[in-house]
């Protein structure tokens, strides 16, 4: 599996990463060398093997439905880049 320039552009867009024209060849090359490393696993047969998502065979714990969080807007917004009237500001959202 080998990526070309348009694959790299598509992936960068999905990941919302701006990518500068001169960087594309370098990204393409390094991603391809990583993918060829990764592709070594394709030779190993894994039919019928249950995928392992979590190392421990544990199950989800449940939280009781009790309010534990008080309003902390001021401290939580202290590091926000743009806030007005308690709202986070972003460039216009078009529906």
């Amino acid at each position: 599996m080998s990526l070309d320039r348009s694959d790299v552009e598509r992936i960068a867009h999905l990941a919302r990463l701006a990518i500068h024209e001169p960087e594309i060849p370098e990204y393409t090359e390094s991603l391809n060398s990583i993918l060829s490393l990764i592709d070594q696993m394709q030779a190993t047969p894994t039919d019928g093997i249950e995928p392992l998502a979590h190392p421990l065979d544990a199950v989800q714990r449940l939280r009781s439905d009790v309010v534990t969080e008080a309003n902390q807007r001021d401290s939580l917004q202290a590091c926000a880049p743009a806030v007005e009237d308690g709202l986070f500001l972003v460039p216009k959202v078009i529906e």
């Binding site: 599996m1 990526l3 694959d7 790299v8 992936i11 960068a12 999905l14 990941a15 990463l17 990204y27 390094s30 991603l31 990583i34 993918l35 990764i38 696993m41 394709q42 190993t44 894994t46 093997i49 249950e50 995928p51 392992l52 998502a53």
Partner: peptide, 29 residues
Amino acid sequence: KRRIMVGTYALSEGFYDAYYRKAQQIRRL
């Protein structure tokens, strides 16, 4: 950025089984 791109690619449509699921099976091995 490189790792975000590799991960994004591995999860993208059409590649999930060949990469992500396969890697989880190897994880079990």
